[in-house]
Write a protein that binds this DNA or RNA. Structure first.
Lengths: 125, 125
DNA sequence: TTGATTGTATTATGGGTATAGTACAGCGGG
DNA sequence: CCCGCTGTACTATACCCATAATACAATCAA
């Protein structure tokens, strides 16, 4: 049973987007596999301390994007096939790397200096 | 006279934030120097095809952050000293690199694979 | 069977953002 | 002097997001 306790919400992006992205990352990490159950809308809302309506919106989005299926009898489960996984992988890496490279180049940073900056932040926590 | 023709607005972030960030980047790139004039609110609105009120909000933000000064006689001009430049540099690199590294680590990417991904996107246009 | 949980839906409120439209005092160039 | 531009301010509208508070039919366990 996938849970949402690890998800730390930020104040920048819509909450329902963040929730769906979280599930996407779990699929990417192979921590969410086809058939895995998701908690109920109300349970997820409790885990994240958000409104059940916002969770409903996230589930709706995940269903539309194809990796969550819902039946009123069984609740919601993960569904992924190779096509969906490939789509998610492309989406996650592209959405991560592309804007970063664009911004770095807009600031006219060199490739080497960017690598150096990342190295600085990589280990520190 | 600094203009805003190069700024491509996205649909993700508030427009007035993007406008202020654009000026910040020009300062970072030393394309905007102390004393450089900014167009009027209405002129910026025209350059970006947005509402003058939104521009006013951007100018208000830039004044609050210290790198734009306005007098009703001379209009708005850039003002930066070494302290402000240092602050902007830290802010831009941190806001660029930190979230990127956080996301990459959340996807459990290795440092080397991240560098490789960036290399893939770096030259491509 | 009864009661609790489920997915789903609706209405209302509030905050943030962006827009449109208007207004006004101050200043400068013709 | 006067017209136009300036910065500034205000109201109203609209959209998206998030929340609160319900409501209801279907399902399942006790």
């Amino acid at each position: 049973m996938l849970n949402f306790y690890d998800l730390r919400l930020n104040n920048r992006d819509p909450v329902y987007i963040q929730a769906a992205m979280y599930v996407k990352r779990q699929i990417w990490l192979r921590r969410a596999l086809s058939g895995d159950k998701l908690p109920s809308r109300r349970e997820v809302a409790a885990q994240l301390s958000i409104n059940p309506n916002t969770v409903q919106k996230a589930f709706k989005l995940m269903e539309d994007e194809g990796y969550v299926r819902t039946s009123s009898t069984l609740g919601s489960i993960i569904y992924v096939d190779s096509e969906i996984i490939a789509r998610i992988e492309n989406e996650l890496t592209r959405e991560l790397v592309k804007p970063f490279v664009d911004s770095a180049q807009e600031l006219q940073l060199s490739f080497d200096s960017v690598v150096e900056l990342i190295r600085e932040y990589w280990e520190v926590e």
